[in-house]
Amino acid sequence: MLKPSYPIRTPRLILRPFTPADLEALHAIQSLPEVTRYLYWDTRDLEQVREALEARIGESALLEEGQCLRLAVELAATGELIGDGTLFWHSSLHRSGEIGYVFHPDHHGKGYATEVGRALLELGFDGLDLHRITGRLDGRNEASARVLERLGMRREAHLVENEVVKGEWTDELVYAILQREWRARH
Score class of each variant (00 low, 15 high):
Lys3Asn: 04
Lys3Ser: 06
Pro4Trp: 11
Tyr6Leu: 04
Pro7Arg: 08
Pro7Ser: 11
Pro7Gln: 09
Pro17Val: 07
Pro20Ser: 04
Asp22Thr: 10
Glu24Gln: 14
His27Tyr: 15
Ile29Leu: 14
Gln30Lys: 10
Gln30His: 12
Thr43Leu: 00
Asp45Gly: 06
Gln48Arg: 09
Glu51Thr: 13
Ala55Lys: 15
Arg56Trp: 12
Arg56Asp: 13
Ser60Gly: 09
Leu63Asp: 15
Glu64Lys: 14
Cys68Pro: 00
Leu69Phe: 14
Val73Phe: 11
Val73Thr: 14
Val73Pro: 09
Leu75Arg: 15
Ala76Arg: 14
Gly83Cys: 01
Gly85Asn: 09
Phe88Val: 04
Ser92Pro: 01
Leu93Ile: 07
His94Tyr: 15
His94Gly: 04
Arg95Glu: 12
Ser96Arg: 15
Phe103Glu: 00
Asp106Glu: 11
His107Pro: 00
His108Gln: 06
Tyr112Gly: 09
Thr114Ser: 12
Glu115Trp: 07
Ala119Gly: 06
Ala119Val: 08
Leu121Ser: 03
Glu122Gln: 14
Leu123His: 10
Gly124Leu: 07
Gly127Trp: 05
Leu128Phe: 04
Leu130Pro: 09
Arg140Ser: 09
Asn141Glu: 06
Glu142Tyr: 09
Ser144Ile: 04
Val147Gly: 00
Leu148Thr: 08
Arg150Met: 00
Met153Ile: 08
Val160Phe: 08
Asn162Gln: 14
Glu163Met: 00
Lys166Gly: 07
Glu168Ile: 05
Trp169Gly: 05
Arg180Cys: 01
Trp182His: 00
Arg183Leu: 14
